[in-house]
Design a binder for these strands. Structure first.
Length: 390
DNA sequence: CATACGTGGTG
DNA sequence: TCACCAAGTAT
């Protein structure tokens, strides 16, 4: 019986390269990075605040997507003190469209904590950093090494792939055993001098050369020490992550108009997009799906029937659906959502909850509120249409 | 150890 | 169109 890590007969304990190969690896990578490292907005500094913000934004998010957000965010909140003094809604507003909004809340919480408890300074130690909200093992290592040049290891998407290939590790690198091996390698490969720069070099190589599909091995400075390359296993390593099944869903978003305002609600803590503003939104039962497949306009009477009660229960008001504004599609986690956006005319009733979580809002006021992406798209459509009709 | 959490880009 | 992937963390 052999474990997943030794399918090819090599025990995991022997996968870590010896001293000579480590030395060659470090030298080759360092030279390569000097010539090939990209200039990124958060690389030109050792400011822990900037590095922290960039690392949080980069969690599960591409560099290209982050850059404009990073620039805007730093302009609005240039220091940890400014961030700590801001309202949460304004922080979320800057985060709008980036996803994983708990990151924005954690950033805000952490900023306040640092200002309150440490005069706005950051811990320099990875273990201390990891105690802060939203900072896990990777991010702690990244901040400690990039900002303070601590010898802290990192393992994330790029390095997980790079290390797995370098070691020729055919087991599951996300498993407990795989993680243990990779973190050990990450620690042992780290040089005494400029560990932060070296960590960045590892990630850079992983993201630009040792790519998920079609890695550019001929250009890789580490091909001579790469076990996957030696055995031509680049396309087998790392083992792909299993993906959950996608479920199609139909939802309806209702923009209830009352004079020159629309009803908005703040999503509850247990809902997706918790705390963000949205138009009242409902799942459309499978019984209406057949109607949904017809022209959307034909759905209006059916939706009027089926949504009247839920709408009253959720908001406290009743309204008459008038027309379909647009249809949006988006995927979120394991759902593919077809969102039918409708307009409705307010009839009667008063808001169920206080003005805290529901409010009548003029389109000009939409800009200041944080929405999810689909909520923002509908908000913009209504604003534009409103201007056009007035 | 599995799952929730978002969105946009790519082949 | 669609599956896959992205500088992960919290529970």
């Amino acid at each position: 019986m052999s474990s997943a890590g030794e399918c090819d007969g090599t025990p995991e304990s022997e996968l870590i390269p010896d001293g000579n190969r480590m030395t060659r690896l470090r030298r080759n990578l360092s030279r390569w990075y000097a010539a090939n490292g990209r200039e990124l907005p958060w690389r030109a500094t050792h400011d822990p605040y900037r590095i922290w913000i960039s690392e949080i934004m980069l969690q599960q998010t591409t560099v290209a997507a982050v850059i404009p957000y990073f620039d805007r965010f730093l302009k609005q909140f240039p220091t940890v003190d400014v961030l700590a003094a801001a309202d949460e809604n304004d922080v979320l507003r800057m985060w709008e469209g980036l996803g994983y909004y708990s990151r924005a809340r954690n950033i805000h919480t952490t900023a306040r904590q640092l200002v309150a408890e440490r005069d706005g300074t950051f811990p320099e130690d990875a273990d201390e950093l990891q105690r802060l909200p939203g900072i896990g093992r990777y991010t702690a290592g990244a901040i400690a090494s990039f900002a303070f040049d601590r010898r802290a290891p990192i393992v994330e998407a790029n390095t997980l792939r790079l290390y797995s290939r370098l070691l020729g590790y055919q087991g599951d690198p996300r498993s407990s055993a795989g993680q243990k091996l990779l973190w050990r390698f990450a620690e042992e490969v780290l040089p005494r001098k400029q560990p932060g720069r070296f960590n960045q070099a590892l990630m850079e190589l992983g993201s630009t050369v040792c790519t998920p599909t079609a890695p550019d091995c001929p250009k890789c400075p580490l091909r001579t020490v790469c076990r996957a390359f030696a055995e031509n296993l680049q396309s087998e390593i790392p083992r792909p992550k299993p993906r959950p099944q996608i479920t199609p869903v139909v939802e309806a978003s209702i923009a209830i108009r009352r004079a020159d305002t629309y009803l908005l609600r703040q999503r509850r803590p247990e809902e997706r997009w918790a705390g963000l503003w949205d138009f009242p939104r409902f799942e459309v039962g499978p019984d209406l799906l057949s109607q949904a497949d017809e022209s959307p306009e034909r759905m209006v009477p059916f939706l009027q029937q089926s949504l009247r009660q839920p709408l009253e229960k959720l908001t406290g008001v009743s309204a008459e659906l008038t027309s379909v504004v647009t249809e949006l599609r988006h995927s979120v986690t394991r759902y593919r959502i077809r969102l039918i956006c409708l307009e409705a005319e307010y009839r009667d009733g008063r808001l169920a909850n206080g003005e805290e979580t529901q409010q009548w809002c003029r389109p000009e006021e939409f800009e200041g509120l944080a929405f999810s992406v689909t909520g923002r798209k509908l908000a913009r459509l209504l604003s534009q249409r409103d201007i056009g009709s007035s």
